[in-house]
Design a protein around this nucleic acid. Structure first.
Length: 609
DNA sequence: TCTCGGACTTGTACCTAGCACT
DNA sequence: AGTGCTAGGTACAAGTCCGAGA
């Protein structure tokens, strides 16, 4: 069974994930420790430190000890001089009502508060926490005046920013202390960083896109809501004074330390480990190994779905066309979702007739499918894609006699699709195609774009371009940064300044050369050398700036982070860095290096995805 | 086979520390 | 020293996929 193909021992052996083997002494599994160790043994990965764990099926850990979540600070009532007005009259609110009012007041200059659904949901939930008296009096949102509340928080924020250095230092120390106390756990004798150790503070729910629940009240999480997960023999975290946990359990088949149910969607929220942890890293590695196995069978799978386009079974045809989209366009699976509970977004299997347009001929191309739909996070997917004739014909067939709001693949669900994929390859699901296509694209693009004799800056531009190709494929967009135009202009100014500088120095160099010809003395010679060096330096600086500008322009609406963090096998990057002598820090920042520590230790320059 | 809860990954928006500038 | 500005974190929403139970 694939699931258990990688024992912890193998993994540790491979990446040398380890800590110093002094019993009873904790050590963190940090990059630093890694780097030195990896350097020492260079290429050979030796298992040490971590005991060879014999985990049974599905068991994730043996010992887990932590401090529980850090709770949001209690509500601080407004000072008396900050007033809420109803219908023009000042009104003192009960503490609970006031707290919810501040949630709205804080957001006053956010676009959310102008939306009808937001206002409606907020007002409804707000009225629920009001006292009978308040409830009776406060009947219309438009008669509520939160402006003093709003101003109070704006001022407070500014005051905080203007704090003297020492005060800021003090605050920083305090957050560090909290991080220290709650931010780590002990897992099988090793200290691991926790990802999110704080409960989410109360506030107003901000959905993405056109979310029907936007503005609803997100309730304060109390210890009584929280389930603690830790090992039996370890010390159970202490709940805050006067409180109890909802439950303390010991389930070592899951990776979370604490959980609670959130009141908006009724879904569960978890406290889990940081991506740098062994648990997460191992999972990440596995993910890419599955994608690499897809590489071996992808040709076969492609051949098969092409055959299936002509199947007599409608279900099979739909499955084959959907899979083609998932493979070619890196679409998400598209699970069905509850209508009215979330924003109306779709993925491949949930596409509706209204989301595509068929053009037999468009811009000189045949059989073009025009996609236009909102995907995850209500990000628009818009693409015009020429497709195979069979696909085109099938789509026309699928759309026959259907309303725009009908499902395109009415015989298909993600479960059906994934079951099929599972039969084709152990561990294969729809999302694996995204991982596979992203990683393979990076590798191809890097091969194509990088040239040996480029300098580091140019190589990094190539890397970013390869990364960009992937982001484009995965439709990882971002809003044009607000300051884009301005910062672009700044950069352009810098460039022209450099150019002027360069022209100047060229002139000077020429002069120096003439001088040398005339005088032929040591001093003139030195002068020429000096100017030459200066010229080279400026040329390099100019080139760097120009690269920066190109990069910036090409990147303005594309987000690289998501693919880098979630889709690109880090070993490809590590291998590329090693091969072309690019320092890894130029491509991965500290966090990324921590997350990908396993890959950094594992991959040689000849790693092939 | 259908539904739903649960666990875990993926994704963008927002915030801010700290850097490069003047 | 003050002032932008942005990279890089944090927060948390929104997906995917699995398996249990009716």
């Amino acid at each position: 069974m694939f699931k258990h193909a990688y024992s912890v021992a193998t993994w540790l052996a491979l990446c040398n994930l380890r800590s110093v083997g002094i019993p009873g002494l904790l050590s963190s599994w940090s990059f630093k420790c890694f780097q030195t160790k990896a350097a020492q043994i260079k290429g050979k990965f030796v298992k040490a430190g971590w005991e060879e764990e014999n985990y049974e099926d599905g068991v994730k850990w043996k010992v887990l000890e932590h401090k529980g979540p850090y709770f949001a600070p209690p509500y601080e009532p407004l000072p008396d001089d900050v007033k809420f007005y109803y219908a023009g009259e000042p009104m003192k609110l009960s503490q609970a009502t006031e707290e919810v009012a501040t949630f709205y007041g804080k957001m006053l200059d956010h676009e959310y508060t102008t939306k009808e659904a937001f206002q409606k949901n907020f007002f409804h939930d707000w009225r629920e926490v009001m006292t009978a008296e308040e409830h009776k009096k406060i009947k219309h949102l438009h008669k509520c005046d939160f402006s003093e509340i709003h101003k109070y928080f704006v001022d407070k924020n500014e005051a905080r920013k203007a704090l003297p250095k020492e005060e800021k230092q003090k605050l920083k120390k305090e957050t560090e202390k909290i991080q220290e106390e709650f931010g780590y756990c002990i897992l099988d004798g090793h200290q691991e960083k926790i990802g999110n150790f704080k409960t989410e503070p109360p506030g107003l729910f901000r959905g993405r896109g056109d979310h029907p629940k936007m503005g609803m009240l997100k309730k304060r999480i109390m210890p009584e809501d929280v389930i603690i997960n830790c090992s039996k023999e370890s010390k159970v975290p202490e709940p805050p004074a006067g409180h109890k946990w909802k439950e303390v359990r010991c389930d070592n088949t899951v990776t979370w330390l604490a959980s609670w149910t959130e009141n908006i969607q009724g879904s569960i929220k978890y406290i889990m480990l940081n991506p740098s942890s062994k648990l997460k890293g191992e999972k990440d590695w596995q993910k890419y190994e599955i994608a690499r196995r897809l590489k071996d069978v992808v040709d076969k799978i492609r051949a098969q779905y092409r055959t299936d386009w002509k199947s007599r079974e409608m279900k099979k045809r739909q499955r084959a066309v959907a899979l083609y989209f998932i493979d070619k366009l890196a679409l998400r699976a598209g699970n069905e979702k509850e209508e009215g509970e979330t924003a109306d977004t779709v993925g491949c299997c949930s596409l509706r007739v209204e989301h595509i347009n068929l053009h037999s001929n468009l811009d000189g191309k045949e059989n073009v499918v025009e996609f236009d739909f909102l995907g995850k996070d209500s990000i628009r997917y818009y693409n015009k894609v020429p497709v195979e004739r069979e696909v085109f014909k099938n789509l026309r067939l699928f759309m026959e006699n259907k309303d725009p709001a009908d499902e395109l693949f009415d015989r298909l669900t993600t479960t059906i699709l994934n079951k099929h994929l599972q039969d084709l390859m152990d561990g294969l699901t729809a999302k694996v195609f995204r991982t596979y296509n992203a990683s393979i694209t990076l590798q191809q693009q890097l091969k194509e774009l990088t040239s040996e004799d480029d300098n580091v800056a140019a190589k990094i531009l190539s890397y970013n371009r390869a990364n960009r190709a992937v982001a484009l494929l995965c439709n990882h967009q971002r809003a044009l940064p607000k300051t884009f135009e301005k910062s672009m202009q700044n950069l352009q100014t810098k460039i022209s300044n450099k150019e002027e500088q360069l022209a100047e120095i060229k002139k000077e160099l020429k002069k120096a050369k003439t001088n040398l010809k005339a005088n032929k003395d040591e001093k003139s010679k030195k002068e020429v050398e000096k100017k030459k060096k200066l010229k080279e330096r400026i040329e390099e600086q100019l080139m760097k700036l120009q690269v920066q500008a190109t990069d910036k322009e090409e990147n303005k609406q594309i987000a690289l982070g998501t693919s880098k963090l979630n889709y690109l096998d880090p070993r490809i990057t590590v291998a590329w860095c090693k091969k072309y002598g690019v320092p890894i820090e130029k491509v991965y920042n500290k966090t990324q290096r921590d997350k990908f520590a396993w890959a950094i230790a594992m991959a040689d320059e000849d790693f092939e995805f």
